[in-house]
Amino acid sequence: MKRRTFLGSVAAAGVGAAVAPGLLAPAVAQAATYKKRVTGADLDTNSRWQVAGTDLGIPYVLENGSIGYLFGDTFNSPWPEQQNNDWRSPVMLRSAVHPGEAGGIVFDSAAKVAGNGRAPEIMHNGHNGIGIDNLWEVTVIPNDGISFPETGRQLVSYMSIEHWNPGPRYSLWKSRYAGLAYTDNGNDFVRTNLKWFNDADNADPFQMWTMQRDGDWVYVFSVRSGRQDGPMMLRRVPWEQLFDPAAYQGWGWNGSNWGWGRPCSPILNGRFGEPSVRRLGDGTWVMAYLNCATGNIVTRRANTPDSAWNNEKIQVTFAQEPSLYGGFIHPWSGAGANELHLMVSKWTHGPAGNSTAYHVSQYVGSV
């Protein structure tokens, strides 16, 4: 199975200029600290649910108030290239343990599993074949999750991967489209017919989503697939109309001011990995992503989703965690010192190109 590289050359591309002054400035160096590894062949994620080698671990609040963690390509072996490795994606583990506890994140269950047992995929995956919509699909990668206690429904944004091959603008892979899947029972996600198709140049900026609800609105931040140069866009949609593409409003610049209901304008430009945005309990908005020009996971802070984001703050460096990516914000993070909890993936390779580590760890930093 051909897989994506984690980053490519971190010096391959610079960070672009912002549309509005002050939105993109040099990073302030202050690294988060490693707390624990949360997946691996030697941990209970494998002995209980056969989740050994895996990545991402995107945390979001479930409709019952606990946390679901969305994992990408998952195997019962330590790394992807081993034979008969039971490839699955996406997979969800769950936990009601606060990440700030002394022992860190501890998983207590897996979606679609009663107790212990193999954690299956939570939605259809084409697996290097014809997918559910008669289109070629290498795999399905989750981008984020969101839930609605009013209805008991959960939604997962995902991207259908067309190929892992490098392309223009330092792209490392190409998605065919972004989509939404939902469940009303907390386990079985149904992929809807909604598709935000990528273009032939892999330049569509609505492929990798992160979602955060605030009142009646869900705010959607998105970038291109492939961790390439490009813009970050912001849209919002009433939470009851997420399945209506016409209800999405763009945040745009008309030459004199910003406003909703316009074609999207870039809120940031750069070489972005998968974005993660969360509104913390005190109302602070925090954004995290892999800055693919520097190889660091960074965060930004804002008072509202449509206000200016402050300068990048380095949380986890390439030196701390070689071949890192992700940097997904735990929604139970606080706004004070040592209260920002991040899920960080690592996929390292030896001199011969063989994998030497493929897992997710918890880091703790500050907003």
Rank of each mutant, 00 (worst) to 15 (best):
I314T: 15
G186E: 05
T304L: 12
S225F: 06
G259P: 05
M233H: 15
G226V: 06
F243D: 15
D282L: 00
D306Y: 08
G283I: 04
F318E: 15
R227A: 12
P305F: 00
G186W: 11
A203C: 08
G255M: 08
F221S: 11
D188G: 02
G255D: 04
A288N: 13
M208D: 02
L268N: 08
Q249E: 15
N310Q: 08
M233T: 12
E240V: 09
A200K: 11
I297Q: 09
V190S: 11
G252S: 04
K313L: 13
I267L: 05
S225L: 08
G255K: 11
D214K: 11
N257I: 00
R236N: 10
E274Y: 12
W309H: 03
D214G: 00
P245M: 11
R227Y: 10
W258L: 06
D214E: 14
A200Y: 12
R278W: 03
P266N: 04
T299L: 01
M287R: 13
N303E: 14
N202A: 12
P305Y: 03
G186H: 02
P275V: 11
P275G: 00
F221P: 04
F318D: 15
D229N: 14
F197S: 11
I314D: 06
W217V: 05
R213H: 09
Q241G: 01
P266V: 03
A247I: 00
G250D: 08
V237Q: 02
N257D: 13
L242K: 03
N296C: 07
T284N: 01
I297K: 06
L268W: 14
N291D: 15
I267D: 02
I297E: 03
G283W: 01
N311Q: 14
Q207L: 15
V218S: 10
T192K: 07
W209P: 09
V237W: 08
N296R: 02
C292N: 15
R235C: 11
N187G: 14
F318L: 14
M287S: 13
W251S: 12
D201P: 00
G259W: 03
F243I: 05
D204A: 15
A308I: 08
N202F: 01
S307A: 14
V298P: 00
M208V: 14
R262W: 09
P231G: 01
A247W: 05
W253K: 05
Q315S: 11
F189C: 07
W209E: 07
I297Y: 07
P245V: 10
F221N: 10
V298E: 14
R213V: 11
N303V: 06
A308G: 14
D201W: 06
Q212I: 12
T284F: 01
D199H: 07
A308Y: 00
F243C: 05
R271Y: 01
R224P: 00
Q249Y: 04
T210R: 08
A203H: 02
L268E: 12
L242D: 06
L280W: 02
Q315H: 04
T210W: 09
C292E: 05
N202P: 05
G250W: 04
R236I: 11
M232G: 10
Y289K: 00
